[in-house]
């Protein structure tokens, strides 16, 4: 953001931005090879019983429009590049919510030859929702906790940038780490 504005104006503008961000975060859902359980539960949060839209959250099709990336699944090797690409297409500030045991640590699939054992090994994660799958209420709980944390000043973002650069470098260097498995 340009810093031509004087300080009080800038502060007021930041407040408005934060207010807008908390009241209408748009989300994108990415399935990186999960079993569908979490995805259906995320979809269920949008339906009348849970109605996530009352928090201003809208599920978006395009990563360019989204602020929050809701990611499920243990990240299969084929989906990894797509996940990084989707993440990079989102504009700052962006937040990642990992939903389900396999997105957190690989869960039941940890050690399988074709998975990355969790979203955190590929992109930085801001909120974790354990469960297999979490109940829709637990997903709402996690997103509300994430939105609550946004009211505090955002942490330094260089950290996240480095992780993603490292991940991209790793791909360029060794694109197919799973080649030993036929």
């Amino acid at each position: 953001m340009s810093s031509n504005l004087s300080k009080p104006w800038q502060a007021a503008l930041d407040q408005i931005t934060t207010w807008a961000r908390i009241n209408s975060p748009w989300a994108i859902h990415f399935n990186s090879g999960s079993c569908n359980g979490c995805d259906i539960e995320i979809l269920a949060t949008l339906t009348p019983r849970y109605d996530l839209e009352r928090f201003g959250i809208k599920l978006q099709g395009s990563p360019r429009h989204a602020d929050v990336l809701i990611c499920t699944g243990p990240v299969s090797r084929q989906a990894r590049e797509r996940l990084i690409r989707t993440y990079e297409q989102m504009h700052e500030p962006k937040f990642v919510v990992a939903v389900g045991a396999c997105a957190l640590s690989g869960g039941i699939f940890q050690g399988c030859y074709n998975v990355m054992d969790g979203v955190e090994n590929v992109i930085p994660v801001d909120a974790y929702i354990p469960g297999c799958p979490p109940r829709p209420e637990a997903i709402i709980d996690g997103i509300v906790k994430l939105l609550g944390s946004l009211q505090e000043p955002p942490a330094d973002e260089t950290d996240a940038g480095e992780t993603i650069a490292a991940a991209a470098g790793e791909i360029a260097a060794a694109p197919h780490a799973g080649s030993e498995h036929g």
Binding site: L104, D126, Y128, I129, R135, A138, D141, K145, L146, S149
Partner: peptide
């Protein structure tokens, strides 16, 4: 407990 969401991994 089922409301387990957290912003860090520590409580897990």
């Amino acid at each position: 407990e089922w409301e387990l969401a957290s912003l860090s991994r520590e409580p897990f």
